[in-house]
């Protein structure tokens, strides 16, 4: 039984969802880790990425690649809309505005008025045909040994983790460039950056757009892997999962989000699978219903965020020395 739980957790931790969340966290790392921008609306960027694909293909019958581009462009527009009013204000205003904007989007997309385009509360489905048609893997066998991934799942994982790698490299290259130097100086002290002739607003905007687009790619991947989008997938807690991943892996560490995503989903997978197994085996108290499994896991995410932030803010791999420096 324990082996089953472990295999299940491992399967979750390398699955398409973990890859999609790694992308969300990479985007957040650009925002929060490197630039110091508090984006609490990453779920909104994910939503436009996912619906960009779904609406283009499912509602309008357009090609898949166009859908991905539409999703990314929508993320650019969203970042501009959010950034213009808030990037000149204190960091917490951006936090409030982004979480509000993500909720506005979700409510708009699930409304009856939007149903002809977005499918309302039911969302959209069956838009990934072209993506899976590209799958070169023979589908008469299972992959990854005990993890037994189907050819379709394997294909999503391959593409997903490749994109994760690509985005990690992109962020890595950018952060070690002079551009990244300006970005990090803004995180340290934006007035200092300004006094040295840097257009802080423009750089923050670039960071917001870039991280948002990476989040939107994560959304597109998420939608393709599930073959369905529903507005209520994009609740604010999605953003906070991504934050937990980011803090777990270590903010401002280039590979942190990837490692964080794998570990986070391993732990969460173990919790969910373990609780379900025990629940099915009747080993849990009666009041521990089906809903309780989710509730316990989410409570755990909260405890994880709190305790990491309090006791190990550098993440599990980070270097504490750097954090102890007096950041004025």
């Amino acid at each position: 039984m324990l082996v089953d739980i472990l295999v299940d957790a491992l399967r979750t931790s390398v699955g398409p969802t973990a890859a999609a969340y790694a992308l969300l966290a990479i985007g957040l790392n650009m925002h929060f880790g490197f630039t110091g921008l508090l984006n609490f609306g990453q779920a909104g960027f994910m939503l436009v990425g996912a619906y960009g694909v779904a609406i283009t293909v499912s509602t309008f019958g357009g090609p898949l690649f166009l859908g991905v581009i539409v999703g990314m462009l929508a993320a650019v527009v969203l970042a501009l809309l959010l950034g213009v009013p808030t990037l000149r204000l204190r960091a917490d205003y951006l936090a409030i505005t982004t979480i509000a904007a993500a909720e506005i989007l979700r409510l708009l997309f699930r409304s009856t008025a939007a149903e002809p385009v977005t499918g309302g509360v039911f969302g959209l489905r069956q838009f990934g045909g072209a993506f899976f048609a590209l799958n070169p893997l023979p589908d008469d066998r299972a992959y990854l040994g005990p993890l037994a991934a189907s050819a379709g799942r394997m294909w999503v994982m391959l593409v997903g983790w490749s994109v994760v790698l690509l985005m990690t490299l992109l962020v890595w290259a950018l952060i070690r460039s002079p551009w990244g130097r300006v970005i990090r100086s803004i995180r340290e002290d934006e007035d200092a950056a300004r006094s040295l002739g840097k257009n802080v607003f423009a750089y923050k905007m670039q960071s917001l757009v870039l991280g948002g687009v990476i989040g939107a790619i994560g959304g597109a991947l998420f939608a393709l892997s599930l073959q369905t989008v529903q507005p209520d997938t994009f609740l604010p807690q999605v953003t906070f999962y991504a934050f937990a991943i980011l803090i777990l892996g270590g903010t401002a560490s280039t590979f942190g989000p990837v490692i964080g995503a794998v570990i986070f989903w391993f732990i969460l997978g173990m919790l969910l699978s373990g609780l379900r197994t025990f629940s099915d085996a009747g080993l849990l108290p009666e009041f521990f219903g089906a809903q309780a499994v989710g509730a316990v896991s989410l409570t755990f995410v909260g405890v994880l965020i709190m305790s990491l932030m309090i006791f190990r803010p550098q993440g599990i791999l980070g270097d504490k020395k750097e954090l102890q420096l007096d950041v004025s």
Partner: peptide, 15 residues
């Protein structure tokens, strides 16, 4: 306003 988590050289290069 020394940029604490950047090296002295990075502080200089930035400017």
């Amino acid at each position: 306003k020394a940029l604490a988590r950047m090296t002295v050289m990075e502080n200089m290069q930035l400017a």
